[in-house]
Design a protein around this nucleic acid. Structure first.
Lengths: 223, 223
DNA sequence: CGAATGTATTTTGTATACATAATTTTACCA
DNA sequence: TGGTAAAATTATGTATACAAAATACATTCG
């Protein structure tokens, strides 16, 4: 771990600021799996007392990003390849569920927004701006979640996405994937437009299987 | 809220004991939806300081059982009929996933344990002991989760089950459901034994749809 | 040299103190 | 009487103090 800094939004409780800061650091890899989260150290580094640090750790723990051992303290949760596979399986099942639900109730306005998103996605790929590419991809899936109209599902999927965040970015870096990605998004959108549940299910499955395969390769390459 | 009492297992940190105590109280309905979780009040009632209470609340919050508004405090999360439907949909998708995974890798020992469980289930229904009935039912589903070999999935499903706990018990109270329940468990087991994914998927779906329908009726009746 | 034991240091667990925001009550005036 | 402002109360947010457990380290003894 290196420099961590608080983005001290005046009116949020410090525990929430700390929580977001630490989460970000874990996801970006600044805090590495297995690294200890020592309260005093973090407190002095972030310029707060132990109290908000401890509460933030309890939140990270419940979210699965940290593991605490009583009287020994917390560490950044390690994620093995098996763990990642497990997460990806769950995510696939839930993303497909989201697609099916979205099929039933996606609105015209939402369909239009999907169109725009795909244009932006394609556009970003043209420029090669990784951040914009990643954001457009995230937005696409988010829009599906929203269209599904199930807030609890949205929360779960956001949490799962968080856990594969690092690898997903690597996947998007590889430009050879881009054309297929666009095409898959287009197909899913077409299915949503026609309310064709079976088709959406199948396309989502393919889309996610591709991503799953790629993410697994990345993990294997890193180890 | 009434009497709450700490089950003070000597060696767990108090935050965990408090967490379990409050969770139990919320699930059993001793702490009602919308009820405020006031730190000082809980602290004096449980005989601890505010610190462990606050940490427990952060955990409950991340688990979805409590909602915190900055500078106003925490309340027990309310659950509308819509919320419950949302949870049930997610649970169905994940239980089916668990069934499919279990199909691929259930062991002989596990199959034997399933047999025993069904016998115990049937037995408990004979005596009418609601607690044993509920436990056998929970065990059956737990065994499927275990057989799926995906710990993250197990955690998620346990959390979801938690959220429908109250209604599920009501469902089991109605004896007219019992024969069908046993039969459904038998069918699922048969599917697992043959590793027939399609069949298990279908049977799980029916089993869960029945439960979903029943739970929804119970909710509607209560409101 | 290595295992074991005792001591010092670090770290977590819990309680408490103090500051500030939110709420309720009270008092006052139109 | 009704409404508003000020005061008092209550609750949360944060920091700190103290206790106890875990860890690291040094010393002793075989």
């Amino acid at each position: 771990m290196e420099d961590l800094e608080l983005n001290a939004n005046a009116y949020l409780p410090l525990r929430d600021v700390v929580f977001h800061t630490l989460r970000e650091a874990i996801l970006k890899g600044d805090l590495k799996p297995g690294e200890r989260l020592m309260e005093l150290q973090l407190a002095s580094k972030l310029g707060v007392s132990r109290t908000p640090i401890r509460e933030a750790i309890r939140m990270l723990q419940q979210e699965g990003l940290a593991v605490t051992i009583p009287r020994k303290g917390a560490q950044v949760a390690a994620m093995t390849e098996k763990d990642m596979e497990d997460v990806l399986k769950i995510r696939e099942a839930l993303e497909i569920l989201a697609g099916q639900l979205a099929c039933e109730q996606v609105s015209h306005a939402q369909l239009a927004a999907f169109e725009e998103n795909i244009a932006a996605f394609s556009d970003a790929m043209g420029t090669g701006d990784l951040k914009r590419i990643a954001q457009a991809d995230i937005d696409f899936h988010d829009m599906i979640y929203q269209a599904a109209g199930n807030p609890k599902l949205v929360m779960l999927l956001n949490n799962l996405r968080e856990q594969i965040y690092r690898y997903r970015v690597e996947y998007l870096k590889d430009c050879s994937n881009h054309p297929r990605l666009i095409e898959e998004h287009r197909q899913i959108l077409a299915g949503l437009r026609h309310g064709d549940k079976k088709y959406v299910t199948e396309m989502m499955r393919r889309h996610l299987d591709n991503q799953t395969r790629a993410v697994k390769n990345i993990i294997r390459a890193q180890e």
